[in-house]
Design a protein around this nucleic acid. Structure first.
Length: 886
DNA sequence: GACCTGCTGCGGTTTG
């Protein structure tokens, strides 16, 4: 008989003692969490950070595992178990060894490696106090090979990992044995994964884990933790899978999910830095550096400040601007963004934690992750773009129960003041954005135009073939239990299976694409080729980044990375600002740009091609509502009050729209006929509308339009006469054939081709190369472009091609939102104004368009002239975005 | 000497 492990201490007192020893309040909804976990249910916990969600979830699971499944009434913190009879301590399957830790019992998934490390410390501490027999470990890409080897022998009782590392774990042939004792999966920051392909990948892995449970075993619990979302119930359903469809209360096995939404009152203060005189405040621009003095003052008011910006280059510029304005801050401020070297970022993060740094200028790289207690205030430079986003950032300050979170929006142009006020109103009313699962549009459930991420499914099929092989029917049934693949059609399933086995219709001649083979003996799909297996494992995951070049001091430290295109335009001797310093470019060798400290003046800042986030629907709605107030002479916020002169001018020379009326301005000058439309629907929808309108206007007679857009509206300019009547407008707003017309108007093939790169990568059509030896962007784009052409010509039914078009429609044009916008505009009255000059609303659109076309000198002249024209009505300066001279 | 537009995230190995 194998020796029995030492009995763990009674659990309830251990949990109570753990909390008591630290003087912690229990998590306010702890009873609910634990009661659900005791009954083997799954669920989602939503509460502000700093209230002990992690401990609540973990301790409950510890107790749930410890006590027998039936007949428990509760544990710890005032709960008393019905039965004092604990589970028999786990015994080792390996003979002759003493005191083996229990096998993998809890899987803890985080979207960030850093978060895994952070939670590890908390969990390790809690486990040590309650279950000294448990082991806790981390497995991410950073895990050492020694630790990997240890884990490969035997996984720890609690394993913290990422979705990608979990997928890799399921690639191992014996994964089922390793998870046979698994009781619960916890997904931290689930909202970060939901709505992306990473989330889809995780859904598939969770379906695997659930399905691997023997019917006789206790069910696998899934617990998620999420920030505030407008659709928490949907987020929970997607996470916990088919459990959610079950009625609550029959048996523990069938219990539906438990949504624990802790409406803990968290004080959040949102305000704006109001410019001294709005008359001198820009109408356009994005940089906002004219507020630098005010920001320096703000920094002085708090012990520690996070300054969020919207782009990486803006971070670099603001860091320099702050140092220029307040040289005494040198050494007390730092910057942080995703293209900086990890060592620098770690250094900065430590500086915030220890309170050494006064202020850090950052991008959303600091939105999430480790807790920064010393942070007292948050500044947001420029539009926050969304309410949830602003709240997330506000939450980085006042990071403990009872403390106030505060964020101050620093506007970069006048209308951003209105956005800030709108965001505050919406936040106070609890109007928070939803995050829809990928491919699911409109209301709940698969809607018209819904699409499925078959690239992720393809990757998953190969993983399953590697992870012990699969039976097609069984796997299909399992896949369909994940929310993303509910109602998967026969065609989609068969196509994907063909794709991984034969490479689809056009690649059947190439054995490299026959990844999965059918093994007649075992009657299972497997991966027979070792090379294919290895290549698959090195390419797992759904994140596709732009290829980049590292920047490194010659013979010294790495600074971070910039994009190929930027480096391609540099000549040796050129200086640029990067990582908060001025460096001089020397040369490129093997995907590394070598630099040295620059003696000359800086003149360049790298630009990165990142996402162009539009104003969210909720924030756009709230902004329109405040503008409508202004139209009626109501200025209920300090921000709109400040903007009063601008609204009055807009009203005088054009009109101010409201909820029932939308504004179109026309204007004619030497350049041609200008049409300005102001739906206030966010820039992506505006791109779609601009494309749609220009296509429809040009359908009958050949015409060309220049287009520009921002989050408030868009402009069409025609060199030939273009007038607009209410009749033509009616035709423009026709909701029929919208997608077809947009696809005609856009170079859709080109867009889809670009989008296809990501799909080809995720589906395993192209390799990224080994980490550290990544292929260049051009290589990737070339091979994915080649495949795109091959499919288009020889395999037009390829479902990945169709997915590429859907992704362009939904991600780049927000087609669903566009349809809704059309309906709204059709139902509204139009205010059609012919204007004699540019207005506060149209001015930014004009600047936006000129920026694309004109050189710096030309644009300066033009803008100066335009400002002069407006002068007298209201004077304004402008913060003009400039084209870089290269 | 002006003045700068677009976020984040992960991942492999081992046969001497």
């Amino acid at each position: 008989m194998p020796p029995r492990a030492k009995s763990p201490p009674p659990i309830a007192p251990a949990i109570s003692a753990f909390f008591a020893a630290r003087g912690w309040e229990p998590f306010p909804f702890q009873r609910e969490v634990w009661a659900a976990q005791r009954d083997g249910k799954s669920g989602l916990i939503h509460a502000p950070t700093g209230f002990g969600k992690t401990y609540a979830a973990f301790c409950g699971l510890v107790a749930a595992d410890y006590l027998p499944f039936k007949g428990r009434a509760g544990v710890g913190m005032g709960f008393v178990p019905h039965s004092e009879e604990p589970h028999p301590p786990p015994t080792s399957p390996l003979k002759g060894e003493e005191k083996r830790a229990p096998p993998l019992t809890i899987l803890w998934i985080t979207p960030l490696k850093a978060l895994a490390g952070d939670s590890y410390l908390s969990i390790k501490e809690a486990a040590a106090a309650m279950r000294p027999d448990w082991t806790v470990g981390i497995r991410t890409g950073d895990t050492s090979s020694a630790e990997r080897a240890r884990q490969d022998k035997r996984l720890p009782t609690v394993l913290l990992t990422t979705p990608e590392s979990l997928a890799l774990l399921l690639n191992k042939a014996d994964w089922r044995d390793r998870v046979s004792a698994l009781r619960a999966v916890v997904v931290d920051e689930w909202h970060e994964l939901l709505g992306s392909k990473r989330g889809v990948l995780l859904e598939l892995c969770l379906a695997r884990l659930r399905n691997a449970k023997k019917p006789s075993a206790d069910p696998l619990m899934t617990w998620g933790m999420s920030a505030t979302l407008g659709n928490l119930d949907e987020a929970m359903r997607v996470l916990i899978g088919p459990d959610a469809a079950m009625p609550v209360g029959n048996t523990a096995r069938q219990g539906g999910g438990v949504l624990i939404s802790a409406n803990i009152k968290k004080d959040i203060v949102i305000d704006s830095l109001i410019p001294d005189t709005i008359e001198r405040f820009p109408w356009a621009g994005h940089l906002g550096t004219q507020m630098v003095k005010r920001v320096v003052e703000k920094i002085g008011e708090a012990k520690s400040t996070l300054i969020f910006t919207n782009t990486r280059s803006q971070t670099e510029l603001w860091y320099q601007a702050l140092l220029d304005a307040a040289p005494e801050l040198a050494g007390q401020i730092a910057l942080h963004h995703g293209s900086l070297d990890k060592a620098t970022r770690d250094f900065v993060e430590d500086g915030i934690r220890s309170g050494l740094l006064r202020a850090v200028v950052c991008t959303s790289s600091l939105d999430l992750g480790v807790d920064f207690r010393p942070v007292e205030q948050v500044l947001q430079i420029g539009s926050p773009k969304g309410i949830a986003r602003l709240l997330q950032r506000a939450g980085r300050s006042g990071h403990q129960p009872g403390a106030k979170s505060r964020v101050t929006v620093v506007p970069t142009h006048a209308l951003e003041l209105v956005e800030a006020a709108a965001a505050r109103k919406a936040a106070m009313d609890g109007r928070i954005e939803t995050r829809r699962p990928l491919g699911q549009l409109g209301g709940a459930g698969p809607a018209r135009g819904a699409w499925r991420a078959l690239d992720v499914l393809s990757q998953h099929l190969v993983s399953c073939a590697l992870g012990g092989g699969f039976d097609a029917d069984e796997l299909r049934a399992e896949v369909e239990t994940s929310a993303s693949f509910i109602n998967l059609t026969d065609e989609e399933w068969q196509w994907t299976l063909d794709f991984v086995t034969k490479g689809g219709a056009s690649l059947s001649a190439y054995p490299d694409f026959h990844k999965v083979t059918f093994d007649a003996e075992t009657k299972r799909y497997v991966v027979a080729d070792r090379k294919i297996a290895q290549r698959h494992r090195t390419n797992i995951g759904t994140i596709v980044s732009e290829a980049s070049i590292s920047v490194q001091f010659q013979g010294g430290a790495r600074l971070g990375h910039v994009e190929e295109d930027f480096v391609a335009r540099l000549n040796p001797g050129d200086a640029f600002i990067f990582a908060g310093r001025v460096v001089e470019f020397i040369r490129v060798r093997e995907m590394t740009a070598y630099v040295k400290r620059a003696t000359k003046k800086r003149n360049l800042v790298p630009r990165w091609a990142g996402g162009k986030m539009p104003l969210t629907t909720q924030l756009a709605d709230a902004t329109r509502a405040l503008i409508a107030e202004a139209k009626n002479g109501i200025y209920s916020t300090p921000e709109t009050q400040c903007c009063k002169p601008i609204f009055e001018l807009q009203h005088r020379i054009s009109a101010v729209p409201d909820e029932k009326r939308w504004l179109i301005e026309t204007y004619k000058d030497r350049e041609g006929w200008h049409l300005f439309f102001f739906p206030f629907e966010g820039r992506l929808v505006h791109l779609g509308l601009a494309t749609l309108f220009s296509y429809r206007l040009a359908k009958d007679e050949a015409k060309t339009f220049s287009i520009s857009m921002n989050d408030y509206g868009f402009e069409l300019v025609s060199p030939t006469e273009q007038t607009l009547t209410k009749e033509t407008l009616h035709q423009l707003l026709d909701t029929r054939n919208v997608e077809a017309d947009i696809l005609h108007g856009l170079n859709a093939a080109e867009l889809a081709k670009r989008q296809f790169r990501e799909i080809a990568r995720v589906a395993g059509l192209i390799d990224q190369g080994y980490p550290g030896a990544n292929k260049s962007n051009k290589q990737l784009q070339m091979s994915s472009g080649l495949l795109f052409d091959v499919f288009t010509n020889y395999d037009s039914a390829n479902l990945l091609l169709k997915q590429a078009v859907r992704e362009v429609m939904e991600r780049q044009l927000e087609a669903t939102r566009l349809q809704a916008a059309l309906l709204r505009l059709r139902a509204s009255e139009v205010l059609l104004k012919h204007c004699e000059r540019y207005t506060p609303f149209s001015f930014p659109l004009m600047v936006e368009r000129l920026r694309e076309k004109l050189s710096t000198e030309q644009i300066e002249d033009r803008v100066a002239r335009m400002v002069a024209e407006i002068e007298g009505e209201a004077t304004t300066s402008f913060d003009l975005p400039r084209k870089r001279k290269t």
